[in-house]
Design a binder for these strands. Structure first.
Lengths: 187, 187
DNA sequence: ACCTGAACACCGTTCAAGT
DNA sequence: ACCTGAACACCGTTCAAGT
């Protein structure tokens, strides 16, 4: 706990930056170590492996998603719930320090598939989609639910019009998501 | 041309299989070489580098997309054109040997970002999205266009209902895509 | 508790040399 | 034309040893 040097936190910060910029596979532990003026081996005192570094800054997001799923399960499966759920999802993605973690996920989708943390994220995405389509098990509903989540994610890069603020991106994403959700039948 | 042994084609086939199964970064040239009973160095006689192997089976798909974009540019920017374009896109993705190449892309999105072939694919996706939103430069239209393309892609994994055929996936994807496209203003 | 130095097996790539 | 053998610098990981 009482880390005197704070090396662990510094590793996390540098790793998040480099993994996002260059990608997980393209970033070597040597690079991270050099930025911190330590040896590669020092990283292994703080983390069991390279992908444990990823897990460390993914955990917070997993917790948020779990809370969201738990909340959704208690609500009636109506359009109002679906709209509220996607809005809360967007909030937790666009809020606080999360944008940098979100950019990391955006950048490293594939690498994450083989990582423990990535599979957990994938699992949560499917459970969120299920929560959005609850009561309507049709294939079309599953696709609409998944696309409404993608709408939130892809608003970051798919909207290339100039001078669009984060707040506007969020608004547009929810507008498009809502249309998709409106076509899912209530439970 | 007149390759006697056909080693080049055998490399492509094995690489596509392994890259799709395990991912590009996780597949070593040693693995590919061993399957073919040649040395790693032999691969370098047929391909300049590891990512040139990828380029070799991506080219056909790039050509298809270029043809599609060229076709779209000649059409009036109406809903009918957008529907026809996305249908043709789905056809070219679901048709012939392409599903395996499509699964490769699905599996390797991130690795592709740093590859020449990947950047070309990304460029074509944006140009397709632009063709779909032509005449409506609003941010919402850009997002809708991108999501309609995603609908085609994600129908492969987002629809998890049992016993859904490829043909049904295609139909559902186009149904959802059409709704998104209907909300884009005509040029 | 925190970190180093040196070693490990493996990676993509190069190149002279063989047929 | 087609391929091998050996070397290159680099990778993630381990571990005994130092403070």
């Amino acid at each position: 706990m009482r880390e005197s040097t704070g090396t662990r936190e510094r590793i996390k910060a540098v790793a998040l930056e480099l993994f996002t910029e260059q990608g997980y596979e393209k970033t070597s532990l040597r690079e991270i170590a050099e930025r911190l003026n330590v040896t590669k081996a020092a990283l292994y005192y703080h983390f069991k492996s390279k992908d444990e570094i990823v897990s460390s800054f993914v955990e917070e997001r997993l917790d948020r998603m779990d809370a969201l799923i738990a909340w959704a399960d208690e609500q009636p499966s109506t359009l109002a719930t679906r709209r509220e759920l996607i809005a809360r999802y967007a909030d937790s993605m666009f809020a606080t320090e999360q944008p940098s973690v979100m950019r990391f996920f955006e950048q490293n989708q594939t690498a994450l598939k083989s990582l423990a943390a990535g599979q957990q994220m994938r699992d949560r995405m499917f459970r969120l989609a299920d929560a959005l389509a609850r009561g309507d098990e049709s294939p079309a509903a599953q696709l609409r639910a998944a696309l409404s989540l993608f709408a939130v994610h892809s608003s970051w890069f798919a909207i290339r019009a100039p001078r669009v603020t984060d707040e506007e991106r969020r608004k547009i994403a929810l507008e498009v998501a809502d249309e998709l959700l409106a076509r899912i039948a209530d439970g």
